[in-house]
Amino acid sequence: MAMYNFGAGVLWGTPTFDATGAAIANPTPLMLAVTQEVSIDIQGDIKELYGSNQFPVAVGRGKMKITGKAKYGQFNGSVLNSLFFGQTVTSSLYSIVNDVTGATIPTTPFAITPSIPGSGSFAQDLGVRDAVGNPMTRVSATPSTGQYSVNTTTGVYTFASADTGKLVFINYGYTGTSTVAKTSVVQNIQMGQAPTFRADFFNQLGGNGLALTLFACVSNKLALQTKIDDFLIPELDFSAFADQSGNVLKWGSAQ
């Protein structure tokens, strides 16, 4: 009976070592959810022995390599850190406000304090635009027309008295507390260090499945690509190698 598979399948990554080489005591399997496509390529070098005739008299296989690629639709910070960066991550919020509503500059003291989401804290200024989209110029204090100053501790924006009544759009970064959000500051670690993970792939149609496990993988590419009328589809590329027991891969087929 013939076996057919269909669709993109499902890929899991289970972190085994962080970027410093420390083993993960209780690794959490992470699904690359809403899978768009997966490719796993297994290839080897072929060495051919020739004599005086046209065709080789023997063929041997030399070095081999396994590379993979996954595109998935459900964005998750744990996947980014555990499978690509492998550094310290905290349960806290770091985000950015891209202001599309705007606020009107009031009279004395000509200041606007943005309402930060979730009672968060101001982190950084990302500029102010006027009503037609032109950037205003930041100054240290006493702004004149078309200028602004900002208190980087309190997040208070101050404008010129001559700009009273004008509409402005204030963009900024902020931090906050959260039990679900993830934040990480990526450090400049030594070359050669990278997190290691096990990759598990499954694809099926009508109960006929193909299961494949790559025991040790390292990611060499994380791509975050956006389009004006489409979803963000992260792409994770990786290479597989032998684990500490010498195992490279395990596969199982329904037939």
Rank of each mutant, 00 (worst) to 15 (best):
N203L: 15
T196N: 15
D200N: 14
L210K: 13
L222D: 05
T226W: 04
Q225G: 08
A216M: 01
L212S: 01
F202A: 06
F231W: 12
L214W: 00
F215C: 02
D200T: 15
I228S: 07
L232F: 09
A211E: 13
L210A: 05
L214I: 04
K227N: 12
V218N: 10
R198L: 04
L214C: 00
Q204T: 12
D230L: 09
I228W: 02
I228Q: 01
L222W: 09
T213H: 06
L222I: 02
N208A: 12
T213R: 11
D229I: 07
I228H: 02
I233H: 04
N208Q: 13
F201H: 10
L212G: 00
Q225H: 05
Q225L: 10
T196W: 11
C217H: 03
T196S: 13
F201R: 12
N203W: 13
F201D: 12
I228M: 05
A211R: 15
I233G: 02
A216E: 01
I233Y: 03
L205A: 07
F201N: 05
F201Y: 15
C217L: 01
F201Q: 10
L222A: 02
T213A: 09
A223D: 07
L212Q: 01
L222S: 03
D230Q: 12
F202N: 08
A216P: 00
T213P: 03
A199D: 11
L212I: 01
R198W: 00
Q225F: 08
L232V: 13
D200S: 14
A211W: 15
R198C: 06
D230H: 06
G207R: 13
A199L: 15
I228K: 03
D229A: 13
G209I: 04
C217V: 05
R198E: 15
L222R: 04
G206C: 06
R198V: 02
D230K: 14
D229C: 10
P195C: 08
L224C: 00
C217G: 04
A223E: 06
A199G: 11
F201I: 12
A199F: 09
L224I: 04
D229Y: 07
G209A: 11
K221N: 05
A211I: 04
A216K: 10
F197D: 07
F231M: 14
D229Q: 11
A223Y: 01
K221A: 07
D230P: 05
K227S: 10
L224F: 07
L205K: 13
N220K: 03
L210E: 11
Q225M: 07
G206N: 09
C217E: 03
L232D: 06
D200H: 11
T226P: 00
D229S: 15
V218W: 10
